[in-house]
Design a protein around this nucleic acid. Structure first.
Length: 679
RNA sequence: GCGCCCGUAGCUCAGCUGGAUAGAGCGCCGGACUUCGAAUCCGUAGGUCGCAGGUUCGAGUCCUGCCGGGCGCGCCA
């Protein structure tokens, strides 16, 4: 793809700079590579002359001209020109470029084995059905996973299961006190209903039950204690609920092409006493200390480093540090309680222990059991508190990652920063640095959709642009319901277009279209923006949508289908026929729809994926794929392939179509979207 | 009170570590199916990039201060 070209060019430009100006390696400027606004100006642009001009006290243009001359002949490059303002414009050897991409001679990217990274995503409380907010999490998380793998990383996908929290306890309360059920009853319900949907409603009823009489919250506290101790009917129902709901979630996610390698159960972290181990380490390293007096007397606390992410620069830094030092009274506030004065550990404690384990810094490990479902890349494992025969036989290896990505919404930023600080304070600054919080904003409902769901907005929400989703109130759109609705709509479309196809095939096609619609929708917005979910917008198959992207690939595939039927040409034959062909077709500068514009843009997939991972911003990947599909559709209308008389033009166009198809299929795969045979 | 995020066309949003003339989708208006399938394409209209300063060859992008909105900050989970 294109990154190899960038790297080669960057190396040569750097060598030219060194040779011309004798700069020390430390003084060498970055060599940014951009794309000129149109193909007439060039295929790639190097802007290093601007940076150098300042240091060398020369006009950018003079520097650019010297560099261009010094570069000489570059393999794969037709020529390099210096524009009047100092841009170094690079014109690629177009025929060679396309032939090389098609024959995969230069697509070794991703071959080199890199370090293992852990991505944790989804983490839905196992007490109710998944909703659209959870879809944003797993769509982003899974796209991150796929992009990391595409870039050559080994990735372990974890899904954290909070089986011991209040949310499960609430549903237990619902079953026992509202419905008078036994564990056996619950097991039967789980078998005979859509259990997660059943619990969705039950959970909302329990919330109402508490609201009617706050004293009933004591019932919850009691259930929670029973669950923690692991004894009695409540604990049995709690285990049942968590297990069955997790299995429901896995089914929902599998529909969306989302899978995992390991389910980490909070209960195991508690039972295996990961926290006490982590606590010993933190004490030994001085990361936490005992507070003997004051407001927090009797607690073990961790100092909170304020402003780690936004350290003031330059002259103001000293000032800022001073004012912080002076604020002696605030120092006490900048401490986070880790162990309460009564000796119990706070919520962050187990998260710290888990994060240490992910980096292999805990000195303890889980036991493991097979969960009985298919994982991302082999069987799906779950943590266990006790040894199992399967772990003895298969010896799974989890944890010990070099980098960790926690995909979790922005409201958890404070906690996630604490995790990173705990690592740094315990003497692991590198791990702290590689501890990434992939934060994203919430999914709310548009007013129209909220009304459609029969929800009357409360007074304080009337003026806002959106309505908050509330699992406790049962307000929201269930993931399964959304997907079901999309499938039915897509099925109607497919049936209208292909009435001759058998029903199972039409349905299968509709399913891939529905998945494309949801997943693209969840990725297309910047992660820092609240999505006001609008059902009609999400259901759209036109314009900027997943199905639009799929359709472009289907068209490309159709061209080759017809090429085979009419001319006996397949992709290998097209590639083989390119040698010695006239190259006028590639020489044009039609940015909006020409073959060359299409090929060059398609080649940028690796560059785009790398940028997305670096910034954790996958809307860029989505937008790029959409723009590429637009480019193809425009090309499709303007430049016929099958009916083109001139053999050279026909073959170059076919080659461009083949490359587009290859790259767009890969891009869609990064977003977990498949391409149907027809649509 | 402190911290983080957001503010770009009527609506919903892109704009990559500062780069060449600010772009899409939806909606509006007008065109293109006897053609590789119209889930498509082409065209028109629509902008003081929240406001004001600053940094420099160059700012939607960086800095400062305001304005407006969202979220977070407990010995809770």
């Amino acid at each position: 793809m294109i990154l190899a070209v960038h790297e080669d060019l960057r190396r040569r430009v750097t060598a030219a700079v060194t040779g011309l100006y004798g700069l020390a390696p430390a003084d060498l400027p970055q060599v940014p590579i951009a794309m000129p606004p149109n193909r007439g100006l060039g295929d790639l642009a190097v802007t290093v002359a601007f940076d150098l001009a300042r240091r060398l006290r020369k006009p950018p243009r003079a520097v650019g001209q010297e560099l261009a001359a010094r570069l000489g002949v570059v393999p794969g490059v037709a020529r390099v020109e210096c524009a009047a303002n100092g841009y170094l414009n690079v014109f690629l050897d177009r025929p060679a470029f396309l032939r090389d991409r098609l024959s995969n001679r230069v697509d070794g990217g991703g071959g080199a084995a890199r370090d293992k990274v852990i991505v944790e995503h989804t983490a839905i409380n196992p007490n109710k059905a998944a909703h659209i907010g959870h879809l944003r999490n797993c769509a982003l998380g899974d796209t991150l996973v796929r992009s990391l793998r595409f870039l050559g990383h080994a990735v372990e996908i974890q899904n954290y299961i909070d089986d011991t929290g209040v949310q499960v306890a609430d549903v237990v309360v619902g079953f026992r006190h509202l419905e008078g059920r036994s564990a056996a009853d619950v097991e039967a319900i789980a078998r005979d209903t859509r259990f997660d949907h059943y619990c969705w409603d039950l959970y909302a009823r329990v919330t109402g039950w508490y609201e009617a009489d706050k004293a009933r919250l004591a019932v919850r506290a009691e259930a929670l204690h029973e669950i923690e101790r692991g004894e009695g009917e409540s604990a049995a129902i709690g285990r049942l609920v968590a297990d069955r709901i997790v299995r429901c979630h896995l089914k929902t996610m599998a529909r969306l092409n989302v899978r995992y390698d390991l389910l980490t159960w909070e209960g195991d972290i508690l039972r295996l006493q990961f926290w006490s181990k982590a606590f010993e380490r933190l004490k030994a390293d001085g990361a936490v200390y005992f507070q003997g007096s004051g407001r927090l007397a009797g607690c073990w606390v961790m100092r909170i480093e304020d402003g780690i992410a936004h350290a003031p620069r330059g002259a103001e830094a000293a000032e800022g540090a001073l004012t912080r030092e002076d604020a002696g009274e605030d120092a006490e506030q900048a401490e986070k309680v880790i162990v309460r004065s009564n000796g119990t550990v706070t919520y962050v404690g187990k998260d710290i222990a888990y994060q240490f384990w992910k980096f292999g810094l805990l000195g303890e490990d889980f036991h493991y059991r097979l969960f009985g479902e298919t994982g991302h890349d082999g069987p799906l494992w779950a943590t266990s508190s006790v040894a199992t025969p399967e772990e003895a036989a298969l010896r799974p290896s989890f944890g010990r990652a070099r980098a960790v990505y926690n995909v979790i919404d922005v409201r958890q930023s404070y906690l996630q920063r604490l995790l990173s600080q705990a690592l740094a304070a315990a003497g692991h600054p590198d791990e702290a640095e590689r501890s990434h919080h992939f934060a994203y904003e919430m999914v709310a409902l548009s007013h129209q959709t909220a009304r459609h769901l029969g929800y009357a907005p409360e007074a304080e929400e009337a003026g806002r642009p959106f309505v908050e989703v509330s699992g406790r109130k049962g307000l929201g759109v269930k993931a399964d319901d959304l997907v079901d609705t999309l499938i039915e709509k897509a099925l109607a479309e497919v049936t209208a277009r292909h009435p001759e196809l058998p029903e199972p095939e039409r349905r299968r096609t509709a399913e891939t279209i529905a998945v494309a619609a949801v997943r693209y929708f969840m990725v297309r917005f910047s992660r820092g923006k609240v999505i006001a979910f609008d059902i009609d917008e999400a259901l759209s198959f036109e314009g900027e949508s997943g199905p639009y992207l799929q359709y472009s690939v289907v068209r490309a595939a159709n061209i080759f289908q017809k090429l085979r039927e009419r001319d006996g040409l397949d992709e290998a034959a097209v590639l083989g026929g390119l040698d010695g062909l006239a190259i006028e077709e590639l020489a044009g500068n039609d940015d909006a729809s020409g073959v060359w514009a299409l090929v060059l843009e398609a080649a940028r997939l690796d560059e785009i994926a790398q940028q997305a991972v670096r910034s954790l911003e996958f809307s860029g990947l989505a937008k790029w794929a959409f723009a590429l599909a637009q480019l193809f559709n425009a090309f499709y209308h303007r430049y016929p392939v099958l009916n083109e008389e001139r053999r050279d033009a026909k073959l170059w166009r076919a080659a461009g179509v083949a490359y587009f198809r290859m790259q767009m299929t890969r891009a869609l795969d990064l977003m977990g979207i498949e391409v149907p045979a027809r649509m």
